[in-house]
Design a protein around this nucleic acid. Structure first.
Lengths: 233, 233
DNA sequence: TAGTGGTCTAGACCACTAG
DNA sequence: TAGTGGTCTAGACCACTAG
């Protein structure tokens, strides 16, 4: 139980919250009371409370006091990387082709672009033991003079493909995860049977101005793919 | 750009990181230099840096300095609640049955219990427009004298079923998400065709001593189910 | 040895809450 | 009006880094 005092105070409060002694909505001793109890300055108490607040345990109402939060039961941390997500990891990635294409109705809608805009379409296959286990389609807005270097594309994840200019900090990502029957395109590329179950993960990449800088879907053979998530907090 | 000075300093640094002016690994001006630049006390600068650190933008090496983090590209925030996750939301939940059962090989393995332990098995169906769209199985360790009140179970989420004693803060959860063909049990309950694609979400609940306090799977009709996640940071 | 971040103090002033 | 949390200061001492 050694270490900085502010950690000790924070741990003491955490214990009370975890045990249920302090329930969601309950108020916590005022900062002045805590600094008396622990015989520390108010700033040290505030350091403990700031920590607990940033971890989601408490919140404050200025002028009133600090209170125990209602834990967000539905929030999870998910790790996903289309190049690393496959059980046993991918042996090989094969770049099928890179093309500049006209937008379809689907891509126009999803990427919010007009008919005259051109898109780069990158198609890849991931293999385990020479067996294709994932099929990957990615669209990136095409601008005149953009270099499309195939060598760089092969092993790059989506943000790497897109974020050459901007800092990776500035790129937001959204995932949609669904189970579905394999479509004809997927059946052909993964050499599976019509209607086999597939895990489809759609990725959308947005820059700091909310412009869509990339959109695509990875189709995973369901037997080779599983996502894991853990509760945050 | 008004507001507390420590927020201004933090936003200034964030801008430099987002624009790429400060790249991952780069060192940040020392706390003393920043307090000179902004004409504030070192404690105020430290407040800015603590904020950026807790948000994942920077980290510090004591004795050396503060540095820009390598952003965790693969980390996402996922919201999931088996009672609210269905597109258009569930109209009705039907409790099929609650039974005290002997553990199977599967539950013994997943819940780390022995043959002599008994389990409560709760089976539920979720409906939209009288159509069953999700089938839910949950196991909870049974202890003598445990009340099994059906009324309370019907609309409860998993943590609510389990966490009556402990604080909800103390319960950790793990999800496994996979696409699969419907098994016979699922086919029968959801009244679908053999082999239809299903999204299976397995939940494991652990208490603060890492004991497994609940385990179960929800099988969603894939047409009615989609998960969304957004990049954290 | 000079500089760095980590911890802690004792004070100040503020806006806000609630009796 | 007494008490609360929010911001900020000017100092102190520490262990650590790196020349």
């Amino acid at each position: 139980m050694r270490g900085p005092i502010y950690i000790v105070i924070a741990e003491d409060l955490k214990k009370k919250i975890n045990s249920g002694e302090l329930a969601p909505g309950d108020s916590i001793c005022s900062e002045n009371m805590l600094s008396d109890q622990y015989n520390v300055s108010r700033m040290t108490v505030r350091k403990s409370l700031t920590l607990l607040s940033s971890e989601g345990y408490i919140y404050s109402i200025p002028g009133k006091g600090n209170y125990v939060s209602v834990p967000d039961q539905d929030k999870y941390i998910l790790y996903f990387n289309e190049m690393k997500s496959i059980e046993g990891s991918v042996d090989e990635t094969k770049l099928l082709d890179v093309n500049v294409v006209k937008p379809t109705a689907e891509t126009m809608c999803n990427m919010k672009v007009f008919e005259n805009q051109r898109l780069i379409l990158v198609r890849r296959l991931m293999y385990i033991d020479t067996k294709p286990v994932a099929y990957d389609l990615k669209y990136i807005p095409y601008y005149r003079g953009m270099p499309v270097v195939e060598k760089e594309i092969n092993y790059a994840t989506f943000p790497e493909l897109v974020g050459q200019k901007k800092s990776l900090f500035a790129i937001r990502k959204e995932l949609k995860i669904k189970a579905q029957r394999a479509s004809k395109d997927v059946v052909d590329n993964l050499r599976i049977n019509d209607g086999d179950p597939i895990m489809a993960i759609e990725q959308k990449l947005l820059d700091d101005e909310d412009k869509i800088v990339g959109w695509g879907t990875t189709y995973f053979l369901s037997d080779y793919f599983q996502l894991q998530a853990i509760s945050s907090l």
